[in-house]
Design a protein around this nucleic acid. Structure first.
Lengths: 217, 217
DNA sequence: TAGATTGTTAATCGATTAACAATC
DNA sequence: TAGATTGTTAATCGATTAACAATC
């Protein structure tokens, strides 16, 4: 994998889309695809796709295009999906349960090894083939099991406490569903935020705006 | 609300963050804030914040700053949060349940009026003070209740079917957690996608990339 | 009035698109 | 060889940052 110097977030966020689409193509038995075909299917420009891929190396063949399975594997490799980073999840409420069961962490580069909650009702139950543990045991567990990433499906106050503890024992990567701003407090942490409320408000804006700009009828 | 012509998505996606932070300030009893203070707290530049807000009008006062409650209300108004758009949700699995219970749709511009699932185990149960209905009744329900937005917490095949049906009866707005590409099939639909798998893969890239660029030790 | 901070214009930076030479 | 399509450079477009005049 040559090149790859400060690739922009815009490019990185498109990689999973390429990856998903190539997966479908593979399933359909398509072996070869050109940037033009890809662009039509994904609603991007061919130029952009070639530009994006060339951040990481030349995966195509002039006059021919890209070999689907080869490009698919290359992107999996770029994303690091075979790493299986050991992961702990905090919060076994509705969202935590959805994340734990819905996500096949394994296919996306992670391996769920521990789930924690503070509620006695939940502690001891099983979820995604794992026991839900008392969050009080989390520090001890993490010191021995050494997870690399933590998922936060907890309220902001809990996220504040937990990130302090986890940062303290060396965890630097977070998938954050809470509204606590981890990156603000730990600038060297790698944080991927998912703010569902923000997403919903954005949609509300778009709907309201459309209604405002198309007033008649 | 003056101005507002083709405001960019980058600006729109920052509005909920401003809104959330202003909410916290209000709670803390802060009445006044300058763009410089705001920028420090949010990790943006003061310039950007002023630029963003001025897409919608002049909410500040020279030499003074912004009145917290006034700006808060203005943003709520810009986002259209008081619209209470009637909304239906499809899929009462783990994710659907999380969305239905976790989200206070009301605070974010929507009003959940119907939940649908195809599984007999789930039909008839209650969720977020609503009965889970048979998806077979969805069309009839929507024809009479006229929801404005639909949430998809279903697999892609179901999303394909449902979007055809819903588009057919006039629904044009979607909060899409599935990997079915609504906008590709219905270009005039307003779609907010949430792709959790993509988010996770992006995080995997960032972790792998960090590891690669800081090799020693 | 003096100090502060906005609103807004101009400069910079980065990302996307277009074009085309290289080459399979 | 001719046709096709990449890799890559150059041109355009848009978003962010800087600067400063307006004004509270």
């Amino acid at each position: 994998m040559p090149r790859r110097e400060n690739v922009s977030m815009s490019v990185i966020r498109r990689l999973p889309r390429y990856y998903r689409y190539l997966h479908r193509l593979k399933e359909k038995g398509v072996t070869r695809i050109s940037s033009t075909e890809l662009s039509a299917k994904l609603g991007l420009t061919a130029s952009q796709i070639r530009q994006d891929l060339n951040c990481f190396g030349g995966f195509g063949q002039q006059g021919y295009g890209y070999i689907v399975s080869q490009l698919y594997d290359a992107i999996a490799n770029i994303l690091g999906l075979s790493n299986g980073y050991p992961t702990v999840l905090f919060g076994a409420g509705n969202l935590g349960r959805a994340i734990a069961t819905h996500m096949s962490f394994r296919d996306e580069g992670f391996r769920l090894i521990g789930i924690f909650d503070k509620s006695p009702d939940r502690i001891g139950t099983r979820l995604a083939s794992l026991p839900v543990r008392d969050v009080a045991e989390a520090e001890k567990f993490c010191r021995t099991e050494r997870p690399v990433m933590a998922v936060f499906c907890v309220p902001p106050e809990a996220a504040a406490e937990l990130s302090a503890m986890l940062y303290g024992i060396g965890i630097r990567n977070f998938w954050n569903f809470s509204h606590y701003s981890i990156s603000m407090h730990y600038p060297d942490a790698v944080v991927e935020n998912v703010h569902l409320n923000d997403s919903l408000m954005t949609l509300c804006y778009l709907i309201s705006d459309k209604a405002a700009s198309a007033p008649e009828k």
